[in-house]
Simulated assay, not measured.
Amino acid sequence: MNIIITGASGFVGANLTAYINKKGYASEALSLRGDWLKQFNPSAGAIIHLAGKAHDLENTSEEAEYFKVNRDLTIALFNEFLKSEIKDFFYFSSVKAVADTADGILDENVKPNPLTPYGKSKWEAEQYLLAQQLPGDKRLFIIRPCMIHGPGNKGNLNLLYKVVKKGIPWPLVKFENQRSFLSIDNLSYLIHQMLNNKTVASGIYNFADDEPLSTNQLINNINEVLNKKSKFLSIPKGLIEAVAKVGDFLRLPLNSERVKKLTESYVVSNQKIKNALRVDKLPLTAEEGIQKTIKSFKKI
């Protein structure tokens, strides 16, 4: 079966492409820049739509750009899917399409309240797709992943690794939290299973590892990989938040958005997709996935 993948050159796309190719599928990278319809294959078996404009932590992007890329291009691609012979459409949205923060455990029934242009653009794309009449032989999957990571991925985990590697005591120990992550291995496994299992119904599915982790647990995991003893610095939360506000003004690496990312609780349930696939556990535990990612940083 041929699988069209948009955003194939990105972190998720490159890893997912390698994974499904090993499983015997033939991937087709589709760039949505320029006249992409000339390369569109209406006879493929499925579309995995990963391409999009990611959330900008420094808030320098134009709001309209999020809607142009995340909503409008998705709509155009989905309309071609409806006219084609392709059976499955996977739209990679985000948990941020419905909840910028999470009280308790976030599942697929949460009342949507996106707060950022990124989240709103993803939510509007979701709404368009769900409003269309879907032929009986086609399936639509709206995937809402939480924070994705894996070997070679750069972002907050990489920043955290660099801080700990330098031996700097972790100053955010006072922030107690629980957060869901998603390893690229578990993501690829779930997509492969959904492609294979024709009994999985169309719908919205959260993707997350089985267990949440605290930031303090992440610090311990990093130190374990580095064969170091964890160092914690007990600084009042109010002082950290004040420094972060200065970072907002001066555009420093430590700003309110990054502190929030590192310390907020955001627990996501993956029970719906596991029930649909009839699996009890994903291949990697959250801790195993995190340690695999961290070990890859040592080679950079």
Rank of each mutant, 00 (worst) to 15 (best):
D100C: 09
T293C: 09
V69S: 08
I290N: 00
K120R: 15
L160V: 03
N206C: 13
S93R: 06
Q178A: 13
T285D: 01
K22R: 15
G13N: 03
V12Y: 09
V225A: 04
F40A: 01
F81H: 01
S61T: 15
A125V: 06
K198E: 10
W170T: 02
S43A: 12
V267K: 13
V110T: 09
T101H: 14
K83H: 08
I142C: 09
T74F: 08
V200L: 09
F40Y: 12
S214W: 12
D280V: 00
V69N: 08
K245V: 05
I142A: 08
I273V: 12
D100L: 11
I184S: 05
V164K: 09
R179E: 02
L254S: 07
W123H: 15
A64K: 15
L77E: 00
E126M: 05
A201T: 13
K299V: 09
Q193I: 00
P114W: 08
E264K: 13
T17H: 08
L213Y: 08
V173A: 08
R179I: 02
L277I: 01
L73K: 14
G45D: 12
F207T: 06
L218H: 12
T285W: 02
K272N: 10
N197K: 13
H149R: 10
P169R: 11
V95L: 02
A64R: 15
L160R: 04
L57R: 10
L159G: 14
A44Y: 11
S269Q: 04
E257W: 00
Y205W: 07
I3N: 11
N196H: 04
N113Y: 05
F89I: 02
A14K: 14
S93C: 11
A201L: 14
S84F: 04
P253D: 05
T116F: 01
G247Y: 10
E80H: 14
L172P: 00
N206R: 11
L218Y: 13
N59L: 15
P117W: 03
T116Q: 03
P171A: 00
D248N: 12
S296L: 04
R71L: 10
K245M: 12
D72Y: 03
Q127E: 14
L182G: 05
P112K: 07
L159N: 14
K245R: 15
K23V: 00
G155S: 10
K299Q: 13
I142H: 08
K237M: 12
N227E: 15
F297T: 03
E241F: 11
G7E: 01
K272G: 04
E288H: 00
R179V: 02
L157A: 11
D137S: 12
L226G: 05
D137F: 07
S9W: 08
V268N: 04
A102K: 05
G152I: 03
R139K: 15
L32I: 06
S93M: 11
T74C: 11
V246Q: 12
E288I: 00
L82G: 04
W123I: 00
N223A: 02
E80Y: 11
L182Q: 06
F81V: 01
N2V: 05
D248K: 04
I5M: 05
A29I: 07
V268I: 15
N21V: 04
N186C: 05
I4V: 03
T263W: 02
D103N: 15
L159W: 14
I86E: 01
R258H: 01
N158A: 07
A54R: 09
L218W: 14
R33W: 06
K274P: 07
E241N: 12
L82N: 06
G7T: 03
R33G: 08
D56T: 03
V95D: 04
A208R: 04
E288P: 01
G150D: 10
